[in-house]
Simulated assay, not measured.
Amino acid sequence: MTTPKFILQLREKIGHDPLFLAGITAVVLDPDDRVLLVRRADNGRWTLIAGVLEPGEEPAVAILREIQEETGIVAEVERLVSFEAMPPSSYPNGDQVQFLDLCFRCRPLSGEARVNDDESLEVGWFPLDAMPEIPAREQICLTNALSSDPLPKYTGRPA
């Protein structure tokens, strides 16, 4: 994932100290119940589309920006699925971070899924019963997005 300029500027001031950031995740489902995934360039893993909220940006607008930037798909938000404080973590360079993640269920409006930036190696639509392995937390996001309960979960754990 390319580090946003505002984070690089903050890191110049705070070094490796903990930084609390707002993260955003999308479960993009098409009418055939296929989910849109990206295979990340940094670690080779398949994941949901995700990113970081830029200063002054609305979360739902930010996730639509991330979807289009990463996959070429224009989408719309259907609902907030969950929000949770992720555990603190560290990057290999020593930067400490903790994310408050907002997960949205989205649907595609137009565009063809493709690698649209340098953050992904592959992009694709996958049937729910034939997906590559995704991180456990993202599997919970997917489960919550498929739930008929329209209320957001307070954590990434299924109800």
Rank of each mutant, 00 (worst) to 15 (best):
T143H: 11
M131T: 09
F99D: 05
Y154F: 14
P135E: 07
L128M: 09
P135R: 11
P55V: 08
S89C: 01
I140K: 09
V38Q: 13
P55D: 08
L64V: 02
A130W: 01
S110G: 10
I7W: 04
M131S: 03
Y91C: 04
L10V: 08
N93M: 01
E12V: 03
L151R: 15
E12Y: 04
L102C: 04
V61P: 08
L128T: 04
V74A: 14
L102I: 07
G72I: 01
E66H: 13
P4N: 09
C103H: 06
W125D: 02
G156A: 14
N93R: 03
M131W: 00
F126H: 15
K5H: 12
K13G: 00
D117F: 08
G56N: 09
E70A: 06
N144K: 13
E122Y: 03
Q9H: 09
L36R: 06
A136W: 08
I67L: 10
E54P: 00
A75P: 03
V123Y: 06
V123D: 04
N43A: 07
R157D: 08
R137L: 10
N144I: 11
G56Q: 02
K13N: 12
I49A: 07
E138T: 02
L121C: 03
L48E: 07
Q139G: 15
P135C: 02
K13L: 15
N116E: 10
L100C: 03
F99C: 00
A75F: 03
E78R: 12
R39I: 05
E138Y: 01
R65C: 06
V115K: 08
T71N: 01
A60W: 04
I24L: 14
L37K: 03
E57Y: 04
V97P: 01
V81Y: 05
W46N: 01
Q9Y: 09
S89T: 13
L121F: 00
W46E: 07
A26G: 07
D42R: 15
E76N: 03
V115Q: 10
E122V: 02
E122T: 00
T71Y: 07
A130C: 01
D118C: 08
S89R: 14
W46R: 03
P158V: 06
L64C: 15
D149L: 05
S82H: 01
D129I: 05
C141A: 15
E57D: 12
L109C: 09
R114C: 10
E69Y: 03
D17F: 05
A113K: 04
Y91R: 15
A62I: 00
L21R: 07
A159F: 10
W46V: 10
L64W: 04
R39K: 15
S120D: 09
S82A: 15
G111H: 03
R11M: 03
L128W: 06
D33E: 14
E58F: 09
V74S: 13
I14Y: 00
A50G: 11
P132L: 09
G51H: 01
T143L: 12
R157L: 14
F20T: 08
Q96N: 12
V74G: 00
E70Y: 00
F99P: 05
A22L: 11
V77Q: 06
D95F: 13
F20Q: 13
L151K: 10
F20L: 08
I63M: 07
L48H: 07
V35T: 04
N93A: 11
R45Q: 14
T25E: 15
